[in-house]
Structure formats: structure tokens, C-alpha cells
């Protein structure tokens, strides 16, 4: 099954792009850094969504 997570739009939603803008020395981080960052944002968001709707 192919799940397409709907895009999230929020002033507060953090992205890798915002992050390296604030921390330009991280611009050339390995791919795992970006992936883990984005995964943690997603997980955090899932946590927030769960506790806010349960």
C-alpha cells in the first residue's frame, strides 16, 4: 500500500530548509541528518496530534 501523508501547513511546522537557514554550517550534512530531522518532526507532530485528539 502506498500512503501519501497529506502535506502539513503551519507557521510552527519545522522543516529541514528552515533549520539549515538558521544553521548554515549544516548545509552539507549527510542525508541521514536530514532524514532523522524530518522523521523527528513527523513523530513529534504525530504525538501532538494524538494527544490533542484523544
Amino acid at each position: 500500500m502506498i500512503i501519501k501523508l497529506p502535506a502539513l501547513e503551519s507557521e510552527l511546522f519545522d522543516t529541514w530548509e528552515k533549520h539549515i537557514e538558521a544553521n548554515p554550517e549544516l548545509k552539507n550534512s549527510p542525508i541521514e541528518a536530514k532524514e532523522e530531522f524530518e522523521r523527528s518532526v513527523d513523530e513529534y507532530y504525530a504525538m501532538i496530534m494524538l494527544i490533542s485528539t484523544m
Binding site: 502539513l8 501547513e9 503551519s10 507557521e11 510552527l12 511546522f13 507532530y45 504525538m47 501532538i48 496530534m49 494527544i51 490533542s52
Partner: peptide
């Protein structure tokens, strides 16, 4: 306009006392 923002800033603190605190304490609770 921004449900996620509303949730973080208003809904969660109104539903959960530990999230209705100063930013450091709120972050700790989360």
C-alpha cells in the same frame, strides 16, 4: 487559518494543566 498552531498554543494548554506553563516546563511535559 492554522490548526496546528491553535492546538499547540491554545487547545493543548487549555486541556492539559502541565502544558499550561512557561515554555521550558511545557517543553519538558511534552
Amino acid at each position: 487559518k492554522d490548526p496546528y498552531k491553535f492546538i499547540i498554543e491554545k487547545q493543548l494548554p487549555r486541556r492539559y494543566k502541565a502544558l499550561d506553563q512557561a515554555p521550558d516546563k511545557k517543553a519538558e511535559a511534552l
